[in-house]
Every structure is written in C-alpha cells, then in structure tokens.
Design a binder for these strands. Structure first.
Lengths: 349, 349
DNA sequence: CTGAAAGCGCTAACAG
DNA sequence: CTGTTAGCGCTTTCAG
C-alpha cells in the first residue's frame, strides 16, 4: 500500500492538518515542523493522491478556448473536437468553454485577454497570431495566475508557457520535399498561396518551403506568395491571373489552413493532373480532394490531439505537475490517399 | 453542482447503499426499487464520479504487457515507452507490468495466456501474431473476465476485443505510393524484404504494396519477398544474391519492423542513392538513415501513443465505459527527413 | 502555530 | 431485500 497523509502524520509526529499545510505550502507552519514532515515524505516515498485531493476540494478545472471569430472548415473541425472533449472530460472535473471572438486586430485580442482572471478560469488555450501587444497581454495574464497555452498558431520554444502545434518552418520544408519529390524533375514554377503573409505561421512555412526548394530542387522556382485574404472571389482572381501570366506551372502549394477556396480556384482553371499540389490540414474538402486524387498530399496536424494536449497541459500546470512530454508532441503528419484513416475505431461486438 | 448518490437516494426515497446496488447492478434489489432509482438517475441527469468510486474501492488497475521474447530496436522502443508510462500512471492507480516471454510458437503463447486470470490482471495488452490457437486462447481469456487488447501486431475489426495499431494493408499501400511517386517513372525491379512472411502483418503489407504498384506504377515490378528470419547474416546473403541476380533494381521496401539489418545489407552492396528506399518504424537506426538521406521515407506508427492507448482502452473496458474513439486511432505516419520531430517538447523557463 | 472533527462522492460490511 | 455505519485520502473549518 502506498503511504498516505495519515502515515506521514504519524511518522512526523504531527496531525494530518499540518501535513496538509506542508504539502500545499500553506503559510503558518514552524520551520522545524516543515522539515520533519518533508523528512517523512522522503523516507516513506510519499506521493500525493491527486484525485483524492480534488475530491476533497470539489475542484473543477475551468478551461477556456479562445478562437478566431472568422474561420472555415478547419476551425469548425477544431470546435467539433473541443465539443467532443468537453463531454469526455466532464467526469474528470474539467469544465471547458469556448469563445469564438478573436479578431485580426491585436488590440481587440488584448482587450479580451485583459478581462480574464483566475476568478473565472484556471487556464486559457489561445489560438491567435503573435504580435508584441498580444505577447504582453499573455504575460500579464499568466502573471495574474491564469495558465496559458498557445494553440496551433504561434511559435514554439519562445516564452514561459506551452505551445501546442507544429513547427511551421519544418511543415513548409516537408511540403517542398514532397512537391519536389513527386515532380519528376520537371523544370517550372510553383504557385504559392496563403490567406495572409502577415501571420507569422505563413511566413515560417514559406521560409521552410523555400529553403528545401533551393537546396534540393533547383529545377523549381517558387513564385511570390499570393494572398487570398479569406476571400473566395479574390482567391479566384489572383489564381486566374497568375496562371495566365506564368505558363510553366508544375506545382501548387497552399499554405493556409483553410485551403478549400484556393484549391477550387486552381481546379477551375487547370487540370489537377498537370501539377503536383500540396496543401495543409485535413478538412472535409481537402479529404475529398485527396480521395479524388485532385491533390497529391496534405501536411496536417492532428487537431484532436492538439486540443486534448492543450487541456492536459493546462491541467498539469494548474496542478503544478510536470506533463508527460512525449505525449504532448504534435507531429507534422503527411497524408496521401493511401494512409487516410478509414476506420475511426476497431472493435466488433 | 452535479447530483450525487445522496441526491439520488433522496429523490428515489431509498438509502445510498441501495443506490449503489442499482448503480453497480448488484443482485438482490426489488424490481420496482431499481426502476425508481433509474428514474431518479434520468431525471437528475446523474453521472457517476468514477474517481470517487475508485477511491472508495482503493481500486488499482493491473495491466500486463505481453511482448515477444526476441526483438531489436523497435521492441526496445516499445519497452521504453511502457516504462515511461508506468511511472506516469502510478498516480491514476494503474499498475503496469511487462513480460518479454512470447515466442513464435503458438502453443507457448497459448500456455502463457492460459495461466492468466482476473485474480492477477484486469487487462492484458498482447503483442503476438495471429493464429487459430492464439485466437482461441484469447477468447477464453476474455471469457474468464480478463480484458484484452491486441497491440500493434494483429488484425483490426475482427474480434470482440480492441486492436491498437495500424492497418497493415494500408501501410503497405502507402509505402508503394511513396516509392512509386519518388521513383521518377524509371522502369525496374523492387526488392522486398521482411522478417518472415508467416506473420499476417507482413502478408498484409505485401498485399497493399502490390495492389498500389499494379494500379499506379506499372513500370515497377516487385520481386518475391525475401525473408531474413531475424538473422543478420542471412539478411546479408539474400540481399547480396538478389542484387547480383537482378540488375535493374530501382526500389527497396523493407516490410518488417526491425529494419536495421536488411537496410545495412543493402547499403553494403549498393549506393543508397541508386534506388528509392522505404522502410517501417522509427528506431535509432532508421532515424539516422533518414537523417543521412540513406533512405527516403519511413512508414511509422506512434508507439508511445499506441501503448498509452492500450492502457486507456483496458481501463475503459474494466470500468465498462465507452472509450473516446477518435483518441484511440493509431495513424499511419509518413516520416521524411523534413518532418522528423526535433524538439521533444516546447517550453522555455 | 497546531489539532480535532466533519465532509468530498462512493463503497463495504454488517445488521435487520 | 434494505438501511446504518464506517472509511478511502485529502481538505477545510474552527478551536485552542
């Protein structure tokens, strides 16, 4: 049997209440009592039972997902994943809420973040592009005691909070590697489209893409990035114009997570078989395109996993526990028609 | 506040003990009392608090991983993952043990399985090839009340227990798609190697591989499967002979999860750049080969995820709870040099 | 600064 | 067939 607070109390010659005080670093305990309890902890190899503690506290973890207001299939998919998770974690005292109210304007984002406090939320999963203003606001938020994880959009490895998502430079490089590899060494141009280049995510993908193209596929030349600004008509226009101006297009790379409109524009003016086409993220549209072989590959991240990871991280931070690192890594996945996962799950009854 | 058994008891006009009896379908409760309690459950929207129940029962989930006795880097990696997980889940009353004692001989496997009982284990994760004998033994095991999940090796969708792993037909198809796609339409032969074709896994991969090759890459012809029988020297010999007998080899496909020896044999007799090389699973060796561009791609499954998934499934089955299907899907991943995940985890302090 | 006692939601043992 | 009582491991008053 694992030792309990009762055992600690006996070993340290104090009451269970005092053990509790020491365990939770509550104030008002004599230094020597603290030492005695800590010695007992070490000696007995005590590990606290978090669920018993949560039961006693009737603790609920309140987690908020802050998402962009506008979005297409990709964002809808994320909302769905959150919805599924919300039900699944109710048994673990986790209460998830979602707000779709972030805009491109950093000041609006800052305003929303500034209203958040530990009174209302233990943790926030934020899906917003980086900017100096937002960075400051998140710092203040965490200082106020609200845990934060940056979700999908943003930069790994840079600040004192967690990032859940893929390395966009590597994602772009992966796209280039596939596009170049599948292209059979034809010479020509590559059309590159995204939503907007002001987002760091797209910029990083482009850098990764270019670096591999230059290194390994000198026969390919990537054109300047086209920006659709989330506008269907605009996507159509810029694609049409570019296809008209550049004759020898052998590849297309759609960098944005909402790829449907740009891809449809391409299909409208070109036979899909005439070039290698790579896009990002798995949505109903992109899945269909892959199945129909209208595109060659998708670079994706497992959004369900990302969302669960965000919740686990926020919970771990709230508990002051170190998360299981390997589990929280979001991989850059490559999807071909052949490895689209068919079955959701496997069990016959 | 969510309703508790206390609320149920009051609403149904019975004691908490009776509520408990109904909740856990214990015998000896009047039909009408059961109805009353169930009515209250429905009315109040009661959801049981599993961790409170576990606390009261001091329940521990005893889970056994049964692994093959012999194995290389791939199996070692799985053992490592289990080791990490064992520590991580100790706080969740899960006790994991591992036995590396399965042999190729089905009768030995059966013997081991027949000794397992609910007295010792709540669930077993079994990594063994399919065979009629083993199938019977697993059926008897589950009938005895020990939950079972088939891990990595085996067939999805066929029996009344869970399978955690990838669809090997699709994995083989994916390999062919990459090999053919990267090959730039050269005509030639493809060397195919595995450990042993008697395992269903390899057979399935081969079928998937061939089907895509025939459909989409008629310029490629896959040679009969070579079998290394986990023997380094034998791998060397068969590879050398085949390379001597067939001049025009433009591709190599290693189907087995332990790929190091066959790959090294290939490198010994051929310049790696002369053909497209695809193998399975990420291990120290295959990772290095990918980084050095000695191989072109890996088809992998996330073993850490698979192991965690197995534990979650066995726990869910033991609780009689439906698992979160989407989370337990193991994907066929494609690894190029570009999307090898660098960072394990991302947080600066 | 420390301890006693009650309670979180559920289960187990024993009466009745 | 059903209720009472005690207790899982930890936290939270409230005294002292």
């Amino acid at each position: 049997m694992r030792p309990t607070t009762k055992d600690l109390a006996k070993a340290a010659g104090v009451s269970r209440a005092t053990v509790d005080r020491v365990l939770n670093e509550r104030p008002g305990v004599q230094e020597k009592t603290i030492k005695a309890v800590n010695a007992a902890i070490k000696e007995l190899g005590f590990v606290r039972n978090v669920s018993a503690a949560n039961l006693a506290k009737s603790k609920v973890y309140r987690i908020l997902f802050l998402l962009p207001q506008v979005g297409g299939e990709f964002l809808a998919g994320i909302e769905d994943e959150i919805g599924v998770l919300r039900l699944a974690v109710r048994n673990d005292n986790v209460e998830i809420s979602v707000r779709r109210e972030l805009s491109r304007d950093p000041h609006k984002v800052v305003e929303i973040l500034s209203k958040l406090s530990p009174e209302n939320f233990d943790g926030v999963a934020l899906m917003a592009s980086e900017s100096p203003q937002v960075r400051d606001a998140t710092s203040r938020l965490t200082e106020r005691g609200v845990h934060l994880v940056q979700l999908i959009s943003g930069q790994p490895d840079i600040r004192p909070y967690d990032f859940v998502g893929i390395d966009n430079f590597a994602a772009g490089a992966t796209a280039a590697s596939l596009l170049g590899g599948f292209n059979r060494a034809r010479e020509g141009n590559v059309l590159v489209i995204t939503d907007t280049m002001t987002s760091l995510d797209s910029a990083e993908r482009r850098l990764g893409f270019d670096s591999v193209l230059q290194d390994r596929f000198p026969e390919l030349k990537a054109l300047p990035t086209l920006e659709s600004h989330s506008d269907r008509d605009r996507a159509d226009t810029i694609v049409r114009n570019t296809l008209r101006n550049f004759s020898n297009i052998v590849g297309v790379y759609v960098m944005s997570s909402e790829a449907a409109a740009p891809l449809e524009a391409v299909f409208r003016y070109r036979d899909h078989a005439d070039q290698v086409i790579i896009a990002h993220e798995q949505t109903p549209s992109t899945t269909r395109f892959l199945q129909d072989r209208k595109i060659d590959a998708l670079i994706t991240q497992n959004t369900g996993h990302a969302v669960r990871s965000a919740v686990r991280l926020l919970k771990a931070r709230a508990d002051g526990v170190e998360p299981l690192a390997s589990q929280e890594d979001v991989r850059i996945e490559i999807l071909l028609k052949e490895n689209l996962s068919r079955r959701q799950f496997s069990r016959k009854r």
